[in-house]
Design a binder for these strands. Structure first.
Lengths: 142, 142
DNA sequence: GCTTGACCTCAAGTCGACTTTAACTGGCAG
DNA sequence: CTGCCAGTTAAAGTCGACTTGAGGTCAAGC
């Protein structure tokens, strides 16, 4: 099993060492031991970091990601929760798609005020569909 | 032209008044005047707030949104920039889609460790494709 | 005339996610 | 032995996006 010091992990993951320490402190990753003072990581930490980066991209908080990663190894994954998150993501994707189309349209449409362009408006209203954002979606700190 | 006080804007937009004041301070919205001390908003501020919410969903910072909104009314929209943003969003969407599929697969797949499941791995590697930190899109942030 | 409620300002506080700083350790090169 | 380099810690600082708090204004209602 290949062992990496923090510098290698940093270089390969693209994350600064400080972030790796921070993630370890938060329990998102674990070092497999020490060599003197120095942390030693298993190669597999890179995959875990990928998953974390992915989760961040998807908009999850570090805490939410920690939960999911914990569930992942654990005795029972909450399949229902995963499906809920998948569905949430699905909504997000649809909204982002509408926004993307909106931007693209804005880049082409000659109307000088997009707010009054019907195509733009249609896309935006498609994207909106509920705009009071209170904590309700991603983490469900349960 | 209908005029709204901050309370109505708050109720209709779902945002607290403090946020509306903050947005005004940042130049994202404007009140059309004052009634005594009290801000008076045009009804159109609601649409603007929708766009702002949309932008937030798409992962843009308030500053970036302010820029885009400024460009919107201005003399020339940077079409190239819009197209770039659209393309960025497109990548994000693809990655989110892979993540969604990954989650959904994880919810169904009987393997007890998804990290070793080839289907899961394929989806995740599809989602990754570059993992340097750079925030992009968030679902209803938690 | 006094209270209540919705609004105001300005300053300070909070939260998440890091980054920076200062002081220290331990290995290896010259 | 001396320096340097990569690593270590704990604590403080930063940044974006708000929220909260203290203290004030004003119209309406009892």
């Amino acid at each position: 099993m290949k062992e990496l010091d923090i510098g290698k992990v940093a270089r390969w993951s693209g994350l600064p060492a400080s972030t790796l320490r921070y993630y370890e402190e938060k329990g998102l990753i674990h070092s497999i031991g020490r060599n003197g003072l120095k942390r030693v990581f298993a190669e597999s930490v890179l995959q875990r970091l990928s998953l974390i980066a992915l989760g961040r991209t998807a908009g999850f908080s570090l805490d939410a990601i920690a939960e999911m990663l914990a569930a992942e190894g654990g005795p029972a994954i909450d399949r229902e929760q995963l499906e809920r998150k998948a569905e949430q993501l699905d909504h997000t994707i649809r909204r982002l798609s509408a926004i993307r189309d909106g931007l693209r349209h804005a880049a082409l449409c000659p109307a000088d005020n997009h707010l009054s362009c019907p195509t733009f408006q249609r896309l935006m209203s498609m994207a909106s569909k509920q705009m009071g954002r209170k904590r309700s979606a991603a983490p469900e700190r349960a």
